[in-house]
């Protein structure tokens, strides 16, 4: 079981309202890698990680997490959704949110124990947010909110992490803190899949890059994949036919 790759995707196709957004994705992610997922807007970056976690219906193909169907290994997955996906005026404290990272391990009916609280507190400490534990979440800056989401993911104590644009709209100090944290997690053997939209930093932040534009353009070590030609075919306009066909499929569906 330890030999199975953290994430294996075979011939994955995902459609939104019958319009395909990801075509025939094949991917085997090795253990202990920090992987950046880059590509233009609408390339399906968020869709890919959501489909990998089983959050959206897939049209064809399969996903395995540590050699098992994803539903069987949900507790080994940690997730940082996009920050805008929640209402930050919601009446919960920072600690409440981080404790939610423990809920998956608890399952239905059981309540967080003292040990869960300790784990949550440690996670908050790692992102330097422990002093804010009792604050209501709307009193935080964007960078602080992102750290809270990271702390919640840390509290999940997972082996495979999916993060959706953790660097979006954060201050420089938070960005540096997140990078440091990601490297620390990697050093502990965790595998991290990070949706990222800033090309210049992508080159220095990640070990491996997944260039995505509705299909996998390239996947490999950053220095091999970050080439002019590959980036050109990821971001360039050569995929118009693919998106036109997708539109046609939707209309006929």
């Amino acid at each position: 079981m330890t030999d199975a790759p953290p994430l294996e995707i075979h011939d994955l196709t995902v459609a939104y309202h019958k319009k395909p957004v990801l075509w025939g994705i094949d991917l085997v992610v090795p253990r202990g890698k920090l992987v950046g997922i880059v590509g233009p807007n609408g390339a399906g970056k968020s869709t890919l990680i959501k489909a990998a976690m089983g959050l959206m219906p897939i049209s064809s193909g399969w996903v395995k997490v540590f050699g098992e169907p994803v539903k069987k290994n949900l507790t080994r997955i940690g997730y940082v959704p996009q920050r805008e996906s929640v209402d930050w005026d919601f009446p919960v404290s920072v600690m409440d949110v981080v404790l939610m990272g423990r809920y998956g391990h608890l399952g239905l009916l059981r309540r967080p124990s003292k040990q869960d609280r300790d784990i949550a507190r440690e996670s908050l400490d790692k992102v330097k947010m422990l002093p804010y534990a009792n604050r209501q979440i709307s009193n935080l800056s964007g960078g602080q909110q992102q750290r809270v989401f990271l702390a919640r993911a840390l509290a999940q104590e997972s082996d495979l992490y999916f993060m959706d644009e953790p660097f979006a709209g954060v201050d420089a100090a938070t960005e540096a803190a997140i990078v440091e944290l990601l490297h620390e997690l990697k050093a502990r053997g965790k595998t991290l899949m990070i949706v990222h939209h800033d090309l210049p930093t992508a080159r220095s932040y990640f070990d491996m890059l997944l260039l995505l534009n509705m299909r996998v353009v390239a996947f490999g070590p950053t220095n091999e994949v970050f080439t002019h030609d590959l980036l050109q075919s990821t971001y360039g306009g050569r995929l118009t036919i693919l998106s036109e066909v997708a539109e046609a499929v939707r209309e006929k569906g």
Partner: peptide
Amino acid sequence: SFDAGFARAAGF
């Protein structure tokens, strides 16, 4: 109520 996406990912 707070984060349905995360809840689903955590298996709820």
